[in-house]
């Protein structure tokens, strides 16, 4: 799973997809995950990082993470394959 390389999150949580012209906003956790994905981190690493920092159960985060990835895919922000 890899973020498209030309996707960047601004400090204010703004994302522009130059391929499609669409813009998005993310909350801080969403931004953090995108940046981690961009750096090539694996799912487990990201999960551990979030659970170290935030008060959340493994199961809850895993479900939210999958949902979030689904949206990124849906918005064509993740490389196919």
């Amino acid at each position: 799973m890899k973020m498209k390389s030309n996707i960047a999150v601004s400090d204010s949580g703004f994302i522009f997809n130059p391929d499609t012209g669409e813009s998005f906003t993310v909350n801080p956790i969403g931004g953090l995950i995108i940046n981690q994905l961009k750096e090539g981190r694996e799912t487990q690493e990201i999960s551990r990082l979030i659970r170290d920092k935030y008060n959340v159960q493994f199961a809850t985060f895993e479900k939210d993470f999958d949902d979030f990835i689904g949206l990124l895919r849906n918005y064509s922000l993740i490389e196919n394959g």
Binding site: I15, E22, S23, F24, T25, V26, N27, P28, I29, G30, L32, I33, I50, D52, K53, Y54, N55, V56, T60, F61, D64, F65, D67, F68, L71, L72, Y75
Partner: peptide, 11 residues
């Protein structure tokens, strides 16, 4: 730990 909020992206 910080209060968790699920990741959100909005078009």
């Amino acid at each position: 730990k910080l209060r968790y909020e699920r990741p959100l992206i909005k078009r």
